[in-house]
Structures are given as structure tokens and as C-alpha cells.
Design a binder for these strands. Structure first.
Lengths: 228, 228
DNA sequence: AGTGCAGCGTACCGTACGGTACGGTTCCGG
DNA sequence: CCGGAACCGTACCGTACGGTACGCTGCACT
């Protein structure tokens, strides 16, 4: 509600030329961070004029917002939930989303964009952060929450508050990886698939129903086995 | 262009006058973000001259590094582990650290500093991020890990890899709160004590030994004597 | 062909910032 | 009382960046 009129709502789409420009800008951002993302630099990298940049995106902040919405629009590949039932199927679907989440969060572009939004966020005001949360986290939360509630309807999971359960699952999957990456740390040998499987397993141990937790007591149930 | 030898290792200490200046700089950063942290602005806010800033801290980056080490040196309040034994005592100690962690992470200065370091981190290079990880996370990890291993020695906990267990505990405590805060979100009604108690409870359900997991089954009690 | 529009490239402007230099003041040791 | 060191306040410099203006080219439409 507080968004000034110039802020993008994220629903807009851009011409192919503009997409190419945004792609160049993202590359520039990934490469050199925010301070490499000058209007002159973007114009040079994209072979366009600064005047066009300002015509298309208003000002520099508009360009940044457009970069976020553009990037998030590219990731919009949501496979429809399969109708499979049962604990194994649910675990597999959860693990799939978890792997996807981990890979997205660790991606160069995502990290650069998050750094950008975080870097310019202040006390109360955080225009880009809002955009990023809306476009980046909301979809994941929606998908995971839907899956969790489906699992609850099947009596495979037992939890009271969906949002709370989702957050715990998120914590188990991501832990401190995201912030560490944002701070410049490199994830040493963290295998996304392994991490995801372990997180899902732990989540089931916490929120699985008794009759379904039983057979999984021997921690190996979740398909993927830890090698260590 | 690589870091000049002036980069702080973190062990240095500053004169009272310099501490006051750093305090002013932190206030400025908290208030207006990185772009409010100009050398002229710091000098004005601290009633010192720019020349002194450059003499004391080398350049702007040196000032930023000094701010981080200074702030971390202030938080160095580590209560010695009490010798109490048993599951309840361990849980209480873990919860205490967890609450402390949550409060620190959500603090204005911590958030501002993390935003600063993240905002200027790039692909490989992340001078400030390294400093922040070294001074901010390492101590917490050390304390928590020591506690976890003590619990394992007492046969209260069962885990193979301490670092893995620590990370899972961290994920259960913090979840996505940190990144959300960094992005400008406000934690709605997340009560640190409540969150910490729940995380510790969940952690025990995952890694507590069988004989000790039993009594905790009634998940509401969980020994939060802190009435948070 | 003529006309208008979109866009490229470049030049330009104002400002803000990092960093340096300098004069004036306070304080301390001798 | 003297000399110097530390330091404040301010002025100054060069540069870089956001934003604007302008001239030119190519294309679409009639």
C-alpha cells in the first residue's frame, strides 16, 4: 500500500529488447556487484542508450525493480503436483521442491539480487526487499504449504499451524546456508539433494503422524541414503 | 587494489575517542544505511575531522572494518557454562544461548552491519563478510557446539557430526527470520523465548537419546522457566 | 519518396563523495 | 614560556555517477 506509484507491481512484462537489456544488467550485477551497476555501464553492456533506459524504467531504482521482476519471471516453472499418494510420494515431492529451493538460493543471480536488495534496505523502508520477498519467497511458501496441507489431509503429517510448519521445514532445509552465501562464504561440499533428503527426513520425524513415523524410525526411509 | 595491509585482523583496540567515533558511525549506519555513512557525515556526527578519520582508520573500508570489530568486541559477554547436569539444565542453557542469538540477530546494529557486509560482498571477494562471520558467528558456534558435545558426553544427545548438529539447531532456531529481517521485513510477533524453547524442544526430539526423549513428549511444558 | 518514431551514441550538467591540505586551537612535556 | 603533537573545522580537488539534451541512423507506414 505504501508503494509509490512508480514502483513495479511485478505483473508487467517487457519487450524482447528490454529483456535483453535486463539480462545484461543482471550479468553486470552478478559480475561486479551493485557498484558495477551504473546506468552508463548497463547502457554500454547492452548496447543501448542511457536515454532509452530512463524511458523504459524511469530511473535507476525502476531498473533495479525491473531486474527483480524479470528474473523472478524466468524462474516461474512450477510443475503441477502429481496426484500420487502416500508418504514416499509426499517426501519425494517435498524433496524435489527443497532441492529446487537450495539451487535457486545458491544461484549467482539470486545471490546478487538478494545482496542488492539487502544492501539498500534500511530500518523501515525496503522497497526492493518487499519485491524480492513477494516474488522469490511467496511462491515457494505457497507450493510447500499446499503440499504440507495435502499431507495433513492424508493423515501423513500432523501440525497445527501451516505457516509454522513451513517455517520449520524451511529452517531444516536452508539452515544458515543462505546468509553464509550472502556474506561471501562458499558452500564447501553441501550437496543439495543430500541436504534436502535429510531435511525432509528430519521434518517427518518431527511432524509425521505416529503410524507413519513408525516405519521411518530407521532413519533410512526417505529414499536417499546418507553416505557418511 | 587488493586489501592493503591496513585491514584489521580484529584484535586491535581503539582509544576512547576512537570508540566514540565508531559509536557515532554505527548510529549513522543504523539510521540511514550505507549511503548515509559518508566520511563527512561521520566526521560531522562525531565532531571530529575527516583528517583524523583517515589517520585512525586508513580509509573508508578501514573504518567499516573497525566498526565491525568494535561492535563485536562489545557483545563479548559470554557467561561461563554452569556445571549443572541433566536434560533440563542442558535445555535451559541451550535455550539461553538461542534467545541471545535471536536477540542479537534481530538487533538494529547487527542488521545494519550485516546489510553493509552483504551489500558490498561480491562473487569471490568479501572482506567484510569474512570479518563478520569470524566475529559474529564463530563465537556462537563455539559455544553451542561445546554445549552439544557436553550433552553427548552425558548421553543426553546422540549425533555423529557436531557441525552438522549445530547447523540443524541453528536452522531450527533462526529459520528464515534473519534473511527476512535483512530484507526489511518485520518479525510480526515472534517471541524470542518462545521460539527458542520450541527450537530446543524440536532439537531434542531429533537428537535426544531415546530414554531422554520420552519425558519431553508433552511438548508444551518443555521447561521454559523464563516465562517469555 | 516522405514522414515520424524508436533508439543509439555521445556530450553535457550538477552533485556528492572519497581523500588531501591547511590554518587555528588545545594540551602536554620540558 | 616554548615547541610540538594531536586534533578540529573547513576549504579544496578530482572523479564518478545519475539524469538530461541533442544529433544521427534505420525502420515502418502511407
Amino acid at each position: 500500500m505504501a508503494s509509490p506509484p512508480s514502483i513495479a507491481t511485478g505483473n508487467e512484462t517487457y519487450s524482447p529488447r528490454q529483456n535483453a537489456v535486463l539480462e545484461s544488467a543482471l550479468g553486470l550485477l552478478v559480475e561486479g556487484g551493485e557498484r558495477a551497476l551504473t546506468t552508463a555501464g548497463v547502457a554500454r553492456a547492452a548496447n543501448c542508450s542511457k536515454e532509452s533506459l530512463y524511458k523504459w524504467f524511469g530511473d535507476r531504482d525502476g531498473l533495479l525493480a525491473a531486474m527483480i521482476t524479470f528474473q523472478s519471471s524466468k524462474v516461474k516453472a512450477a510443475p503441477a503436483a502429481s496426484g500420487a499418494r502416500g508418504r514416499a510420494a509426499l517426501a519425494a515431492q517435498l524433496a524435489g521442491i527443497a532441492v529446487n529451493l537450495l539451487k535457486v538460493l545458491a544461484g549467482d543471480v539470486s545471490l546478487a539480487l538478494n545482496r542488492l536488495a539487502i544492501g539498500q534496505a534500511r530500518r523501515g523502508e525496503a522497497d526492493l526487499g518487499l519485491l524480492l520477498r513477494e516474488h522469490g519467497r511467496k511462491p515457494i511458501e505457497t507450493r510447500l504449504s499446499a503440499l504440507l496441507e495435502a499431507g495433513r489431509r492424508e493423515r501423513l503429517l500432523d501440525f497445527a499451524d501451516t505457516r509454522e510448519a513451513y517455517r520449520t521445514l524451511y529452517g531444516l532445509i536452508v539452515r544458515d546456508m543462505h546468509v553464509r552465501l550472502l556474506l561471501g562464504d562458499s558452500l564447501d561440499g553441501e550437496e543439495p539433494a543430500k541436504r534436502a533428503a535429510q531435511a525432509i527426513d528430519e521434518f517427518f520425524r518431527l511432524f509425521g503422524t505416529e503410524e507413519n513415523t513408525g516405519p521411518a524410525r530407521e532413519r533410512t526411509g526417505a529414499g536417499n541414503e546418507r553416505t557418511g
